[in-house]
Every structure is written in structure tokens, then in C-alpha cells.
């Protein structure tokens, strides 16, 4: 995966994993790769990989079964939450971009209607 050098790497990988959960390539309750495997998979620093799981665990996105590894949460409400979060982020980027182009609220709405 390509990284944006301006955003922390751990954050970008978490976003990527979230997208994979939403699009179904990772399912709720699935086992995640070990942090070493994650590091190799995304070609990132092993300590960054550790941090990714720490952060994800803190936000309730995954949990650790002692001696077995890390699993994606089975909590379905999490799924909705991620979707809302990702959509929100996309919306923010979209609106910000359109504003930068100098488009008004009405123009943005019209364009959006057309696209949909």
C-alpha cells in the first residue's frame, strides 16, 4: 500500500484495516495477523505494528486472546461506528476540497445531486 508521508503510518494502516472490515475482506471475529506478520505485510516497522494493535485494542476494534493472537471485535455496533467514521472523514475531505475550489453550498448540493 502507498503511504501518505504526512499522516502517521500507524493511523494509515488502521484506516486500511477498517476499510477491509467494511468491504468484507476481513470479517468480525476474524483472527488478525501477528504484529510481525502485519509489519511484513505492510512493510512497516515492527514497533509501529505493535502500536497499531495497541491503538485498535484501545478503541475496541480488536481484542487479544492470550496465547492465541489478536482478533477483530465481534461487536456489530462497531461496524456501524466504523462506517459512520469513515463516511464522516470522506465527507469532511469532500466538503473541504469543494470549499477550496470556491464553490457555494448550492453549487455543491447541485453537483452532488447530479452525481448521485
Amino acid at each position: 500500500m502507498e503511504f501518505d508521508t504526512n499522516v502517521p503510518i500507524y493511523f494509515q494502516v488502521i484506516q486500511e484495516i477498517k476499510k477491509e472490515i467494511i468491504n468484507g475482506s476481513r470479517k468480525l471475529g476474524d483472527k488478525l495477523p501477528s504484529s510481525r506478520e502485519l509489519a511484513v505485510l505492510y512493510k512497516i516497522n515492527p514497533n509501529t505494528a505493535n502500536r497499531i494493535y495497541r491503538e485498535m485494542e484501545l478503541s475496541g476494534l480488536c481484542f487479544t486472546k492470550r496465547g492465541l493472537g489478536t482478533y477483530i471485535t465481534e461487536d456489530e455496533t462497531m461496524l456501524k461506528q466504523i462506517r459512520v467514521e469513515l463516511a464522516d472523514k470522506l465527507m469532511d475531505d469532500f466538503v473541504q476540497g469543494m470549499r477550496l475550489l470556491g464553490l457555494s453550498r448550492e453549487e455543491i448540493m447541485k453537483d452532488l445531486e447530479k452525481k448521485l
Partner: peptide
């Protein structure tokens, strides 16, 4: 540098 950016501590 860019090659190393994501793998270093």
C-alpha cells in the same frame, strides 16, 4: 529516505 520512512523507529 522515502524507502526507509515507514520501516524506521
Amino acid at each position: 529516505v522515502d524507502e526507509l520512512e515507514k520501516i524506521i523507529d
